[in-house]
């Protein structure tokens, strides 16, 4: 498929040297100066997170405070591991919980959302428009609105205090279906048609033709889903200590006050670094998917 985008091609030059249409040197310098100032503002807190994680305790409580670490050490991380090994529920259990919850939540969401996105993008059937309008409407309000009834419904389904209480609602996020549908729409019909002529059922067309062609979209769904589930402490639904995710356990450490300032700096670093690393790995796929995210009224 000839859909290679500009940003996927390797480039040697960082700046365009050739004369550009409608670009003045004054405008360039103004906008790039603005970019640098705002870039520093955006990056500074992240730089502090990294530096704090590497600061020994005496540098964390230093006056006047310094942004950059002088004697970097991994002391904070080893403190964190000591705290972890002391915990009542073994820390590996928290990690396992997070893997189960985000793993099944992400996989379930991708399967369920793409299965529904395929007919929404490529079939005509009564009710399709209303269904899609409802999904768009659902993107217009946040989950806080439905928090209380969700708790009631989850108790009513009898899945309170199980992994399912976090996994099932996550499968039905509206943004995933929306992005997947928009991306599938640009897959040419001719590709599907040839498979249909060979007598393939719609499920077959979906699994053998459509899914392999929308890989950027499911990577994007995976990233977004991971981002939204990674921060979830599950406090509302999971009461058993053995079921709680890593995020909850890490947050308990940051609540430890001054004595644990070092370990909690390390925690902050871990919490921030993992989603960034995931995004970094899939950036070009995400951007390719977002190119089709537009709303065509």
């Amino acid at each position: 498929m000839a859909r290679k985008k500009d940003y996927m091609k390797p480039r040697k030059k960082l700046f365009r040297r050739e004369k550009q249409l409608n670009r003045s040197a004054a405008g360039n310098s103004l906008l790039f100066a603005l970019m640098i100032i705002c870039g520093i503002f955006m990056a500074l807190p992240l730089v502090m997170i990294v530096n704090n994680a590497l600061k020994p305790l005496d540098e964390i409580y230093q006056y006047p405070p310094k942004i950059f670490v002088r004697n970097p050490s991994l002391e904070n991380f080893s403190d964190l591991f000591i705290l972890m090994s002391d915990s009542w529920v073994p820390f590996s259990r928290y990690i396992l919980n997070t893997v189960i919850i985000t793993g099944f939540g992400t996989a379930g969401h991708i399967i369920v959302a793409s299965l529904a996105a395929y007919p929404m993008a490529k079939h005509e059937f009564p009710g399709k428009n209303i269904m899609f309008q409802m999904v768009i409407l659902a993107m217009m309000f946040s989950w806080v609105v439905t928090q209380i009834p969700n708790y009631i419904i989850i108790s009513w389904l009898g899945i309170n205090n199980t992994y399912l209480a976090l996994i099932l609602p996550a499968c039905a996020y509206s943004m995933g279906l929306y992005l997947m549908k928009q991306f599938m729409e640009q897959i040419p019909d001719s590709l599907l048609e040839s498979a249909r002529l060979d007598g393939a059922s719609e499920f077959k067309v979906f699994s053998t033709i459509m899914m392999p062609n929308v890989k950027p979209a499911w990577l994007t769904l995976a990233i977004f889903q991971f981002q939204s589930m990674w921060g979830n402490q599950g406090t509302g639904f999971l009461r058993s200590e053995q079921l709680k995710p890593l995020q909850y356990a890490l947050n308990q450490i940051t609540l430890g006050g001054a004595a644990r300032a070092g370990a909690s700096a390390a925690v902050q670093f871990i919490i921030a670094a993992i989603p960034i690393a995931f995004f970094l790995a899939c950036q070009s796929n995400v951007l390719e998917t977002m190119a089709t995210s537009g709303m065509k009224e």
């Binding site: 870039g39 992240l46 921060g231 919490i271 670094a273 989603p275 960034i276």
Partner: peptide
């Protein structure tokens, strides 16, 4: 990445 990162790193 610099501009997008703050919005994704959880409780950063």
């Amino acid at each position: 990445l610099i501009f997008y990162a703050p919005s994704i790193c959880g409780q950063a």
